[in-house]
C-alpha cells in the first residue's frame, strides 16, 4: 500500500513538473502574441515583414533588414562552426590521447560559461578593428559571425563528441578488420553513424546563435540598412528589441513584441526543419 502510494505520488509530481514547464512556455507565447498583435493589425503583416525602413519616431516599422541580419549571422556562424566543431569533436573522440582530451574537453566546456557580454567586449576591442583592416567600419556581419562562431563552438563540439563516442565499437572494429584505414573508418562509418547526434548539435548551436543578443549589439553596428556585403553593419531581431525596448511605448512597444513573434516563428521553423531532417536520418538507418 505504502509503496503503491509513493509510486502514485511521484507519478503526479513528475506530471506536475511537465505541466508547469509547458504552462510557462504557453504563457510566454500568449503574452508575446497578444502584445505583438496590435502592431500586425495597425502596420499590416506584409508591410511589417517586408518593409526596409524602421523609424519609430516617424511611425515607420519594417523589419526585413533585421530578419535578414539575423539569418545572415546565424547561417554564417553555422557554416564556420560546423566543420570546426565536428573536426574538433573527431579529435577529442577518436584521435587525441586520453591525457590531451582530459585537458581539452574541460576547457571547451568552460567556454560555455563565459557571459555573452564578455564575448561582445572582446569582439568590440579586437575583432572589430581586425575586420576594419579588410574594409568598412569593422562593425559588421563578419565580426558578428566570428564572435558567434566562438560562442556556438562549445555546444557543437561537446554534443558532437558525445554522439561520435556513442557509436558502437563493433562498427569501427568491423571497418578496420576489413582493411579500412583509421581515417576511412571515421569518414565512412563513424560519422554517418553519429549523424543524427551531430545534427542535434548543429541545431542547438543555431538556437544559441539566433537568440544571442548582447554580444551582437556590441559588434554588429545595429544600423538599419539592407546589408549587401559581409563587411556591412546590420541589426538582428534580438538586438532591435534589446536596444529599443527601454524607450518604447504604444505602437513602438507593440512593434517590438511583434519582432519577438517573428523571432519565435523563425526559431520554430528552424527547429522543425531540423526535426524533420533528423527524423528522416533515423528512418534511413
Amino acid at each position: 500500500m505504502n509503496r503503491y502510494l509513493t509510486d502514485k505520488l511521484s507519478h503526479w509530481v513528475v506530471l506536475l513538473c511537465a505541466f508547469v514547464s509547458l504552462l510557462i512556455l504557453a504563457l510566454i507565447a500568449i503574452f508575446t502574441f497578444q502584445q505583438g498583435f496590435p502592431a500586425f493589425r495597425e502596420i499590416g503583416i506584409v508591410q511589417f515583414l517586408t518593409g526596409t525602413v524602421w523609424r519609430p519616431g516617424q511611425g515607420e516599422f519594417g523589419i526585413l533588414t533585421m530578419i535578414l541580419g539575423s539569418i545572415y549571422v546565424t547561417l554564417g556562424a553555422l557554416v564556420l562552426s560546423t566543420p570546426l566543431g565536428v573536426g574538433c569533436a573527431i579529435l577529442l573522440a577518436e584521435v587525441a590521447p586520453h591525457q590531451v582530451r582530459g585537458i581539452l574537453r574541460p576547457m571547451v566546456e568552460l567556454l560555455v560559461g563565459i557571459p555573452s557580454i564578455v564575448y561582445g567586449l572582446v569582439g568590440m576591442m579586437f575583432i572589430v578593428p581586425l575586420v576594419r583592416e579588410i574594409g568598412g567600419t569593422g562593425f559588421s556581419i563578419l565580426a558578428a559571425v566570428i564572435v558567434l562562431t566562438a560562442m556556438v563552438l562549445p555546444t557543437v563540439i561537446t554534443i558532437s563528441e558525445d554522439s561520435i563516442r556513442s557509436v558502437p565499437q563493433k562498427y569501427k572494429d568491423g571497418a578496420l578488420s576489413l582493411g579500412a584505414t583509421r581515417w576511412q573508418t571515421i569518414w565512412h562509418v563513424t560519422l554517418p553513424a553519429a549523424r543524427s547526434g551531430i545534427i542535434t548539435a548543429v541545431v542547438l548551436g543555431m538556437g544559441r546563435a539566433i537568440g544571442e543578443t548582447m554580444a551582437m549589439i556590441m559588434v554588429i553596428g545595429n544600423a538599419i540598412r539592407m546589408p549587401t556585403s559581409p563587411l556591412d553593419p546590420a541589426r538582428t531581431l534580438t538586438g532591435n528589441i534589446a536596444v529599443e525596448i527601454m524607450y518604447a511605448a504604444g505602437i513602438h512597444e507593440n512593434a517590438l513584441f511583434a519582432t519577438g513573434v517573428v523571432l519565435f516563428v523563425l526559431i520554430i521553423a528552424l527547429n522543425s526543419i531540423a526535426f524533420v531532417t533528423r527524423q528522416r536520418e533515423q528512418e534511413a538507418e
Binding site: 523609424r55 576591442m125 569593422g138 545595429n222 544600423a223 553593419p233
Partner: peptide, 26 residues
C-alpha cells in the same frame, strides 16, 4: 535632417567613446 541609415548605433555613452577611440575615422 535624418541621421543616415548607415550609421552605427550603440546604446551607451561609454560604448560610443570606445568605438571612436578604436576607429581613426570615427
Amino acid at each position: 535632417t535624418l541621421t543616415t541609415d548607415g550609421a552605427i548605433l550603440l546604446p551607451y555613452n561609454g560604448a560610443i567613446r570606445n568605438a571612436v577611440a578604436g576607429d581613426p575615422n570615427g
